[in-house]
Amino acid sequence: MLSQTLQYLFSGLTNGAIYALSALGFSLIYNASGVINFAQGEFIMLGGVAAVLLTSAGVPLPLAILLAVLMVAVVGLLLEKFAIEPAGDADVVSLIIITIGASIFLQGVAQVVFGKGQRALAPFTGDAPIVIAGASLLPQSLWMIGTGAVIVLVLAWFFGRTRLGKAMLATAHNRLAARLVGINTRHVLALSFVISAALGAIAGVVSAPITLTSYDVGIMVGLKGFVAATLGGLGSGVGAVVGGLILGLMEALAAGYISSAYKDAVPFALIILILFFMPRGLFGARVTERV
């Protein structure tokens, strides 16, 4: 009984780490630009796919990972330069369509290069499960959770301590004011896409050994990242992490105790329920719109 619950917790945390990274990507871009980037899931897909292609071409794993993340970061930059920036201040629906167009485009590219099949990346450090109190945990899960934790710490440092990070926060808070004090908000926008893409790629690489990868894995994990970001309150970093972990855990517990068939519906039911009561998510500020 206990071991089973523990098992669900492990799998919830593992997935939750990926959702959290995906949600952080959403929140970063949302803060910098007000855009919900529906191509966020494709960054995750591209990370996994690129790493698989590189390793199967004989590139050693650490180098393959590095290259994959760099490549996807460049994709993020290109996306911002060629799709988001030219759109100017289009309305919400238009921006959503643009990023969805980008998402379909990237899936198409991946399908052409990678084919339609599913492939796995080799686990970083073997696949002998570690048994804890009767529940087993794959070493790769530890990599996923650990990577997630390290990234959260790095981001916390970046936004809390560095000039650049603070400039990005200031831009999120008030773009005009940020521009007035000399922050180049266009660079901030580009940077937020680069960081989000890199985050996505890292998530994609570390999860590829477990979840397998193919050209279409990005959609669901992307949408769930959006759910996690909304759950926490769009634009809130803490919210994204908490939202991601809650989502992973709820999903795993629901799959275990309620119905595995409806596992993928859990995040969506949860978010609708939460929004009924908290229209701006768990950590979203309650504001009175100025008239």
Partner: peptide, 21 residues
Amino acid sequence: FEGYEMITFGLILMLTVIFLP
């Protein structure tokens, strides 16, 4: 076209919305 179909479709989506908002 399969994959190429998605590429074209995605491109058309983006371009229309960007240039004919």
